[in-house]
Design a protein around this nucleic acid. Sequence first.
DNA 1: TCGTTGCGGCTACAGACGTAATCGTAAATT
DNA 2: AATTTACGATTACGTCTGTAGCCGCAACGA
Lengths: 129, 129
Amino acid sequence: MAKRSNGPGERISEAEHAVMEVLWDRSPISAAEVCEAICADRDWSIPTVKTLLSRLVQKEAVGTEPQGRKFLYRPLIARSEYVGVESRRLVNRLFGGRAAPLFAQLAESEALTDDDLTEIEALLREMRK
Amino acid sequence: MAKRSNGPGERISEAEHAVMEVLWDRSPISAAEVCEAICADRDWSIPTVKTLLSRLVQKEAVGTEPQGRKFLYRPLIARSEYVGVESRRLVNRLFGGRAAPLFAQLAESEALTDDDLTEIEALLREMRK
DNA sequence: TCGTTGCGGCTACAGACGTAATCGTAAATT
DNA sequence: AATTTACGATTACGTCTGTAGCCGCAACGA
């Protein structure tokens, strides 16, 4: 199979996503700063973060800008975009593209809080207008 | 030494999931029948299906029962269970465990049909009782 | 100026995944 | 009974992922 033309759209792995979250939170930042933000949590060392960052750069999900002799990293894709793609991927894979069954599923597995219900009701009213 | 018995909970890959879907649809069935159901779609050959089936058996996601000299495969985990786990995994990873933002996201990316809205409204009313 | 250090880049490597061919054996066929 | 066939089991292998070490250069301090 012909290797998909890289570029934005290239799949972002779980570990890479964790790095993206840091960048979405504060950017541009250096590799060291990214590490400060997650190395403890995920029990990673600096080299790991650097590898993930370079893979993200390859995938054109993250861009670099030289700051003096150092590099700062900044996301090239918006979080909302990523989140949208992933959400739709799940809905397609597990629920045949229909959102309602997902909702029912979350309801059944008690993953919906009262606050969620209220918020969703509000959203629904909004959309119905 | 016994590799920690990876009980059910062991991650199911994308390709493996496609096989699970077939089994959830009709089971118990033979490897050949699974292939009949998806090989064309996914452009797989029988060996591929058999490999996926044995990996699923290893992961204790699928069980076998000898039918004569052949084997029939049947899922050991319920679809709803799998779907629930995966849904919650996504909600946790992308939305900090809150379902409302997921809903908002789907709304924003226009992944919600009118039917979805109606169904969800019905579910909400149901849950509010 | 010259060594030290910090950082990006290249290399490494095991385990998971996608995909499939081959092997061994038991059943079906002749 | 011998041959063919049909499976499950074993083996293969390239890619992707997680995790990390080493190398070389540029900047900084002495």
